[in-house]
Design a protein around this nucleic acid. Structure first.
Lengths: 166, 166
DNA sequence: TATTGTTATACTCTATAACTATA
DNA sequence: TATAGTTATAGAGTATAACAATA
């Protein structure tokens, strides 16, 4: 470990330890950035991936429902889906039952991108966790799960869709 | 804990565990967002705080040197410092020794904002770590320190200044 | 009238390139 | 010529408000 801190979290006298909150945000931002670089090679952005995941988990869902899950305004979803449609990864289909609704579906190409994710993920995971052994990774995972659960962060939804603050 | 995963990191058969990398970025983004809300009440943004910290650690430093530390282009620093100057938190002084350089200094008000940070930080830290006991926090801190060190993340510098990707 | 999606518009963030003053 | 900072400009991201189609 690189900074002088006591062996069990006691701050060494006179040294302000880096806070956990800052470390989380710092390391988390780094992980997100590397992820962006990796999926960028597939021609998609992290927000594209998140949207594709939600759509593939429940094909046919409406833009309105996505807006609610992501915590963004509906007009934002228009832009997000526009990007995906321009790339040929999703398709809008007017719902026959309520013609106000757009049903969102992955195209074959969109499905192919999603299919590539599981093979990309382990390398990413391994890069981020590189200095930790198996046991430490398990420990870290369970601590982070506890935090995510406590703060009510939904399993597949990244807070990065929501506007930073105001 | 909220998701079905094996007791020691063995993924339960058939369940894809949330990756550590994703959890880090998710929880980290949440921590950053809450921090933004907290410091927002002091009238500053997280990037303001980061800049103030660097300047107060080494008063008189130049914009160029900040640009290098932050990993951004010099014109970006102009905007960042403009914001700080507009808020009356920092002062630009032409260096007498090399009149091309701006020496950056905190104003009294800027020093006051920085002085408020240490009293704000523990509440933030405690909110983020709420579900963890003392021992777990120490453990998490050391794991995160290891990751930060491995990925060469500098103690006070948030990757969020750097452009997401391209 | 209420709801889904869309467009128009504006504001913020950030980069690139051209420019000014100084060395 | 080279360097520190600045300005001009452009593009991405994201919100609000007004609007069209449908219910």
């Amino acid at each position: 470990m690189s900074t002088p801190a006591g062996p069990a979290g006691e701050p060494a006298p006179g040294s302000r330890p880096r806070g956990i909150a800052f470390l989380l945000s710092q390391v988390g931002a780094h992980a997100a950035q590397r992820f962006a670089e990796r999926v960028g090679e597939l021609g998609v952005s992290p927000s594209d991936v998140g949207l594709l995941r939600l759509i593939s988990a429940e094909p046919g869902r409406s833009q309105r429902s996505l807006a609610e899950d992501l915590g963004v305004v509906p007009s934002r979803v228009v832009a997000l889906v526009d990007a995906l449609e321009r790339k040929g990864l999703v398709e809008r289909r007017r719902s026959p039952r309520d013609r106000r609704n757009q049903e969102l579906h992955l195209t074959a190409e969109g499905a192919r991108v999603m299919a590539a994710m599981p093979s990309l993920a382990p390398a990413h995971e391994d890069e981020i966790c590189a200095p930790l052994d198996r046991e430490q990774r398990a420990l870290l995972a369970s601590l982070l799960e506890a935090l995510a659960a406590h703060h009510a962060l939904a399993p597949g939804v990244h807070p990065g869709y929501r506007r930073p603050s105001s």
